[in-house]
Nucleic acid binder design. Structure first.
Length: 831
RNA sequence: GGCUCGGUGGCGGAAUGGUAGACGCACAACACUUAAAAUGUUGCGUCCUCUGGACAUGAGGGUUCGAGUCCCUCCCGGGCCACCA
């Protein structure tokens, strides 16, 4: 059998170099898509070129989209399938700090490795439009977009908090803070205020929410976007501060009906009222003065805490009394005003009215400071609430609430809101969780923010003719407590030279999420030096038809990219509202132990080794066969061999089957049924079942050759090879050229440029179908029915009753009901 | 705690409310071989009184002629977010 051995090593290398020479699937001017073409823009999540190279997880998602792309092309669509690198970012910079090798160098090497590995996998990318975010030709336009935001007032400067390591004198990213301590030196991380740049994404909040109805995305993804935006409808209730003329505190609540149970008010430490007390803008009585020191200490302590600190303290409530009381005008009770860091300054009004009987956090706070607890909702029990498990946050009947008594919670809420608004004590409001986007990073390896400051320190945009505003190279990567760009002499000299003496550059760089918020736009006109992309190209190719992206950047990246799209639409560049019409997620490939692959666990599978041993085609098909694309699946080292055998068997079969003019009829039928199944499965990304169908076909093919000494005609064999081409591009190309076109043809035609075969509906239908016979819902037998007779109910039922295996179950029994689902099942229900 | 996805043989997984376990791996026996690998053939959910039958899709209820699939209650696991008033 050795002459039928498929030598994957030499064959894959051979076609790799042929395709490379042909620049197969690289877009060129002639190929540019015209309006009448049916375009398909396939987008794969922007990849960070990590130094460790491609891993098997990349292989899965890239292969899936590649199969889809190849299938679409064979079906006559103009496929746009670009590739690029999200190359700015922390890992390269951290490596530079350790090694001294500039990020530009390590990044280039990493990209070269990735490119080589991806090509080796036969991913049919359009390499003509390859982009990388660290290239000045790219970040010129990232900066240009920043300036458009700036012009419209959507890029602004404000105070922001950063994680700060007092020992290393450096800003830390959230992931560099471990248990509230610096990842490198273990020092307690503190919060520090810095003046930083923001994008006003909140200007688009409502549209970011409503736009989700237009797109075909997995439901959980939409849900998470909605949660992140966090729209809440509620009411702001304003309380008079007792003993003052005009002071008030306004609290946001979604549960105003519980207000008869309010026993205190809590302010965030950053609340304006707190600042006013400390700055003595408010006159204080003797008791209040006594509190002053404690308040000062508490606010200071809260400011020093990181978010992680607050988290790790869990549900233990801390706080301090202000000495002030607010009046609940509903029942004229006085509510003590407290300060606590469990209240977030950024949400609602930064002040909360405490209803300890019906909110767990309020309860914990009330318990900690011995504040009264008043029940206003009955859950069947009307008694005192003394333990956490008695706190009742659900619906029930109102009690102890005067005009609300007896009402259901929902009715009570409506009535209370109307009442508060009528009295002028409250106002309906909508509140969102979504904050503006802080884009400043005190980092080197990113696009410089194109802003310069005049000698008075006032910001000015970098002039467009000075873009790209180049990232300097004469910098010290070692952390000094300041943005690395501050160490660049060239950067400062350049600024003075272009803008005048005493002018200084902005030394922060942009969040890498900015780079990846518009890359799918640049792809369509990637070398354009005059615009970020030509308008006609943008509106012809976009929006993206299918976006395949891991579930890990479901929230931020998508939100930011949608925000950019809507802004550029409003600026007149784009004619669509949503960038990604259809989106799907790939699952994670886990290690053989069922755990996430990681170096430290030693469960990492290296794709290069698999390719060497079994070939790229085997690797591709194995990963597609593992299970549904969206599921997390463990790698099974033993199972790869099954795919290898599958390809070897096909190869041997095609070589050894007897040459015939006509295919064996039953086998031909199977071929068309398989074609139908594969044609339906690929667009649905159901690759695992498509491959199973191909395997069944091969099994039948082998049996047929063995029994009937006949196989498929050359024409039908060609259909099969085309069918397997998107899955195993090397393998299919080899067979196609060695058996059907020969190597001497003048113009090279790849099998991947041929047309997808069409199944014959007459051949996909069976002559006979099996109808299952049940008695009382249990399977007792089956009959074959000719396909053209399946709708003849009486005839089928009579045949079923005469079926030998059925007779004994129904003899002397009264059949009360006869169910017949045509072509499927019969059920005799006995009385 | 919130949202969300899932639980089917030894393993990965199939299954528009209609024969549960397709397809692949692993395993076992046999053939070929001096032997091994490779390849081929057969078997492979559990149990029983075994040419048949009973039980089986995390547990328990329900709807239905019929439930892995739909509904309710609960248990377990994964993911994301997390003191959001």
């Amino acid at each position: 059998m050795s002459h039928h051995f498929y030598d994957h090593q030499s064959i894959e290398e051979k076609w790799l170099s042929v395709w490379e020479k042909q620049k197969l699937f690289w877009s060129t001017e002639e190929q540019t898509i015209t309006a009448k073409d049916q375009k398909e823009y396939l987008l794969f999540a922007f990849a960070y070129p990590s130094g460790t190279g491609l891993h098997v997880g990349h292989v899965e998602s890239k292969t899936a989209l590649d199969i889809y792309a190849r299938f679409s092309r064979m079906n006559g669509k103009k496929v746009f399938f670009p590739v690029g690198w999200d190359a700015f970012g922390l890992p390269a910079e951290n490596f530079a700090i350790k090694s001294g090798i500039p990020p530009a160098v390590t990044t280039k090497n990493a990209i070269d490795t990735f490119r080589r590995q991806i090509k080796r996998l036969a991913i049919s990318y359009d390499w003509a439009n390859e982009i990388t975010t660290n290239h000045p030709g790219y970040y010129k336009w990232t900066q240009w977009i920043f300036l458009q935001f700036y012009k419209k007032g959507l890029a602004y400067r404000g105070i922001g908090m950063v994680n700060w390591c007092p020992n290393d004198q450096t800003v830390l990213a959230n992931e560099q803070v471990v248990d509230g301590k610096c990842e490198r030196c273990g020092t307690q991380v503190v919060q520090k205020e810095l003046e930083q740049w923001y994008f006003k994404i909140t200007a688009y909040t409502e549209e970011l929410l409503s736009g989700l109805h237009q797109v075909d995305w997995p439901k959980p993804t939409k849900q998470q976007q909605e949660n992140w935006i966090g729209k809440k409808e509620g009411i702001n209730i304003t309380y008079q501060v007792e003993g003052t003329q005009d002071l008030t505190v306004t609290c946001f609540t979604t549960r105003p009906e519980t207000n008869f149970g309010a026993t205190f008010i809590v302010l965030a430490p950053e609340h304006q009222f707190v600042k006013d007390i400390l700055n003595k803008k408010t006159s204080l009585n003797a008791d209040q003065k006594k509190q002053l020191k404690k308040i000062q200490a508490y606010v200071k302590q809260a400011a020093a805490k990181t978010e992680l600190d607050r988290l790790s303290e869990g549900k233990k409530k801390t706080g301090v009394f202000t000495g002030f009381y607010a009046k609940n005008q509903l029942n004229n009770t006085l509510l003590p005003i407290w300060i606590s860091d469990f209240v977030l300054a950024g949400f609602g009004t930064g002040a909360v009215v405490g209803v300890p009987a019906h909110d767990l956090r309020d309860f914990q706070f009330a318990k900690a400071f011995e504040i009264p607890i008043v029940r206003v909702i009955s859950d069947g029990e009307d008694g005192l609430i003394e333990r956490e498990d008695q706190v009742y946050e659900d619906h029930g009947k109102m009690i102890n609430s005067e005009f609300l008594n007896g009402l259901d919670v929902l009715d009570a809420t409506a009535k209370m809101i109307d009442h508060l608004e009528a009295k002028g004590w409250g106002k309906r409001v909508v509140s969102y969780k979504l904050r503006d986007w802080l884009i400043s990073r005190q980092r080197y390896w990113g696009a410089p923010i194109p802003i310069v400051y005049d000698p008075e320190g006032k910001p000015h945009p970098v002039k467009e003719e000075h873009l790209p505003w180049m990232l300097p190279t004469d910098v010290d990567f070692k952390p000094t407590g300041e943005s690395p760009l501050k160490s660049s002499k060239e950067f400062f000299e350049r600024t003075e030279q272009l803008y005048g003496k005493g002018w200084t550059p902005e030394c922060d760089t942009m969040d890498t999420f900015v780079d990846s918020s518009w890359y799918f736009l640049r792809y369509v006109d990637s070398r354009n030096p005059k615009e970020f992309a030509r308008k006609d190209q943008l509106n012809k190719l976009l929006p993206v038809d299918l976006y395949l992206i891991g579930p890990e950047h479901i929230v931020l990246h998508l939100l930011y990219a949608r925000f950019f799209t809507k802004f550029l639409r409003d600026e007149g560049y784009l004619k669509f509202d949503e960038p990604f019409m259809k989106m799907r997620h790939q699952g994670m490939i886990l290690g053989p132990d069922g755990k996430k692959m990681s170096k430290s666990k030693g469960n990492v599978i290296n794709p290069d080794e698999i390719i060497e041993k079994y070939g790229a085609d085997t690797l591709r098909i194995y990963e597609m066969f593992m299970g549904p694309l969206e599921a997390d699946k463990p790698w099974d080292p033993g199972s790869v061999i099954g795919i290898y055998r599958f390809l070897q068997r096909i190869y041997a079969l095609i070589q050894s089957q007897p040459a015939t003019q006509q295919s064996e009829p039953g086998l031909q039928k199977k071929l068309h049924q398989t074609l139908q199944k594969v044609t339906q499965d690929i667009p649905q990304l159901k690759f695992n079942t498509a491959i199973a169908a191909l395997m069944i076909m091969v099994n039948t093919w082998e049996e047929t050759v063995k029994k009937a000494k006949r196989g498929l005609s050359a024409e039908d064999t060609n259909i099969f090879v085309k069918m397997i081409a998107p899955f195993a591009p090397f393998f299919a190309e080899e067979i196609y050229h060695s058996m059907f076109v020969g190597d001497n043809s003048e113009h090279f035609t790849s099998i991947h440029q041929t047309e997808w075969p069409v199944f014959d509906p007459r051949l996909t239908q069976e002559d006979q179908v099996t109808v299952v016979i049940q008695v009382n819902g249990k399977v007792r037998g089956q009959i074959k029915v000719a396909s053209d007779q399946i709708s003849d109910r009486e005839r089928v039922l009579v045949a079923a009753k005469e079926e030998e295996s059925i007779i004994k179950w129904i003899t002397d029994q009264h059949i009360a009901k006869e169910i017949y689902v045509p072509g499927k099942v019969i059920n005799f229900v006995l009385a």
